[in-house]
Each structure stands twice: as C-alpha cells, then as structure tokens.
Amino acid sequence: MKKRYLLSAVGAMGASVAGYYLKDEKNRNKIKEVSNGLVGKIKGNTDSTFENAGVPDQSSETGDIAQLENSKMVSEGSQFGVQYYNDKKDENKLANQQD
C-alpha cells in the first residue's frame, strides 16, 4: 500500500519537473533536436551498414567488430560483400533512371 503512494508521489514530482522544464521554448527545441538526432541515427544505421559493406577497409567505425571481420575476409580474398554492394547500387541506379 505504501509503495503505491510512494510511486504516485515520485511520478507526480517527475511530471511537475518535466512540465516546469518544458515550459521554456528553448528547452523544448533542445529535446526535439536530440530526439530527432537519435531517430536519425537509428534509421540511418542500416544505410551506413550497407555502405560499409562496399568499402570494408575504409570505414570510419574502426571499433565495430563486424566491420573488422568483413575487412579481414576481404583481405583474405572474399569479395562477396563488395560484389553484393555493387549489384545493389547498380539496381538502385537503374530503378532511379526508370522513374
């Protein structure tokens, strides 16, 4: 019973602090920018993964283990990732030219 009252009080305090913080337009814009940036990173992550497959040894994300493995396979002679990347890029070019 006491937990419910405690959680309700914490929730009410959190809502009031958030309301006070968000009443200023600058703070609302900051929150929007941060959230849009995070959404962009999440959505853009699949594209960067695809782009990195085409140039495995030129990636700026050197700490990514999958990218290091891909670079290692290409250095050993595997061209599957690079060939797949080139084929998809060609398909996209043809589809854009037809539109």
Rank of each mutant, 00 (worst) to 15 (best):
E25L: 03
V74P: 09
Q97H: 09
D57N: 14
N70M: 15
S48I: 14
N27G: 02
N70L: 15
Y85K: 03
Y5W: 11
Q97E: 08
V10I: 14
G37K: 13
S60C: 08
N29M: 02
D64Y: 11
N96R: 07
Q97V: 07
Q67W: 01
G40L: 03
I42F: 06
A12K: 05
L38Y: 15
A66H: 01
D64G: 04
D47N: 09
S60Q: 11
G81H: 10
G40I: 01
Q98L: 10
V82A: 06
Q58T: 06
K2N: 14
N86D: 15
I31C: 04
G77Y: 11
K88C: 00
R28W: 00
T62N: 11
V34Y: 11
K89S: 13
D57G: 07
K88S: 05
Y20R: 01
N27K: 10
Q98W: 11
G40V: 04
T62P: 00
G63A: 15
S75E: 14
E25S: 05
M73T: 05
Q58I: 02
E76V: 01
E33C: 02
A9T: 09
D90R: 10
L7D: 04
D47S: 12
V39P: 02
S48R: 10
Q79V: 03
L7N: 08
G81D: 05
L94G: 02
E51K: 02
G77T: 06
E91H: 05
D64I: 15
Y84P: 00
K88P: 01
L22Q: 01
Q58D: 09
A9E: 09
S71I: 05
Y21L: 08
D64Q: 13
A18S: 03
A18V: 01
K93A: 08
A12Q: 03
V82W: 02
T46R: 05
G40S: 12
G19W: 03
T62Q: 09
D87N: 07
N52Q: 11
G63R: 10
Y84S: 14
N92L: 13
R4Q: 15
M13V: 10
S59P: 02
Q79G: 04
S48P: 00
I42M: 07
S71H: 01
Q98E: 06
V82L: 02
V10E: 06
A18T: 01
G77W: 12
M13P: 06
S60V: 06
N45M: 15
L6C: 12
Q98I: 14
G14P: 05
V55Y: 13
L94C: 04
D90V: 07
K30N: 09
E61G: 00
V17Y: 01
S8P: 02
K3Y: 10
A95K: 08
L22R: 08
G37F: 12
N36Q: 11
S75R: 15
S59K: 15
S59M: 06
D24P: 00
S8N: 15
N70Q: 12
M73P: 02
N92W: 02
N70G: 06
F80A: 13
D64M: 06
V74W: 05
D47Y: 07
S75G: 14
K23I: 01
S78V: 03
D90K: 13
G40A: 06
L68D: 03
L94D: 10
D57I: 04
E25A: 09
D57P: 00
F50S: 12
L94Y: 12
S78D: 14
E61R: 07
